[in-house]
Design a binder for these strands. Structure first.
Lengths: 175, 175
DNA sequence: ACCAACTTTCAATAAGTTATGAAACTTTAT
DNA sequence: ATAAAGTTTCATAACTTATTGAAAGTTGGT
């Protein structure tokens, strides 16, 4: 298999993975394309690599930049802009995890808290309400646990786990 | 706010949360409805609560049963079937996490492994290939780490975390 | 100020996904 | 064996989301 074929396969894989986790397929493919490329690409290169329109490319590039997963680069003497991906996968995972926590988990917990307060104001407080409240409390606790776990893992593992891998790869290259 | 309104709000919330994580909104709402109910519901009750068709209800009930998130119940002397949700939230989280790991993470890792093997067969093995390979290796490592972390958490936290909460709620009810 | 190169926006449309409902099927009771 | 009650399937409709492409906007050079 040619290197270009392998990259193509990876781009497709990344698109599928993204889709499975509720991310726009094209955005994930675009991210994959830049992850697989060791140099920055222009919008036109991206358009032709993924056969997508300029508008589509632009929209997804913007979103990826908002997420902090890709960066824009200008080159002296050139008008067009180049895009490249954050290659530190741990950084990528962190950014995605933190952003989704902020955007999705926290609002959910807020709503649960609101509902719990409302339940306590109810006067007809029978077994049905108690059971319902338990479900809400449990989901809230689970959410909190996930949040804490995320912070713990991100803090602890960052250095312990990924740096050795980095140096392992460096060793392969260097000698 | 009435209890029914609160449940309605929760069902909507659960639908939204599900959607954000790549799950069919109706399936998530249906799951929420059963989570919020302390008794089992019939297909007709579900249909009218969510104003969905019989076919839609049936389809999503089937999927939820495949995931092990709800159960079917038959009652003596009645033809129709009743559905109720797994209420142990930790169990729910476990089932979802394990199933998604199996369905999504593992196939991804397999594909990555395949791509890595192919890369090593390549003869023109320049810096571009080395960079690409590093990305694949890192993603693979991250995947493995997530898999291990999941197992660790599921094993360790199950008893330590959720049981105390259960007893806390019981105490409130009992005295 | 103007042009040329390039980027961004957005209304229209295509593509993809989910829901419907009627028909087919299954099960149980008589 | 038949009917009644309930469940499942599936072709198509309804809806949602993603994509296009052309127009508007921006930027930098002369």
């Amino acid at each position: 298999m040619q290197p270009s074929e392998l990259k193509e396969k990876f781009v497709q894989l990344w698109g599928t993975v993204g889709m499975e986790w509720g991310i726009n397929k094209t955005m994930a493919q675009l991210h994959g394309l830049l992850l697989a490329s060791d140099h920055a690409l222009t919008t036109d290169q991206i358009m032709s690599a993924l056969t997508i329109s300029r508008g589509n490319a632009n929209m997804n590039l913007r979103d990826l930049m908002i997420w902090g997963l890709i960066y824009r680069e200008s080159r002296p003497g050139e008008r067009k802009e180049y895009f490249y991906a954050e290659k530190d996968i741990w950084e990528v995972a962190q950014k995605i995890a933190r952003e989704r926590t902020k955007r999705e988990l926290h609002p959910m917990m807020k709503t649960l808290e609101h509902l719990l307060k409302e339940i306590d104001n109810e006067t007809p407080f029978g077994p049905e309400e108690i059971a319902f409240k338990k479900v809400l409390v449990d989901i809230h606790s689970l959410g909190k646990k996930c949040d804490q776990l995320l912070e713990t893992v991100l803090k602890f593992e960052q250095n312990r786990f990924f740096k050795p891998i980095l140096s392992l790869i460096r060793n392969k290259n260097n000698g």
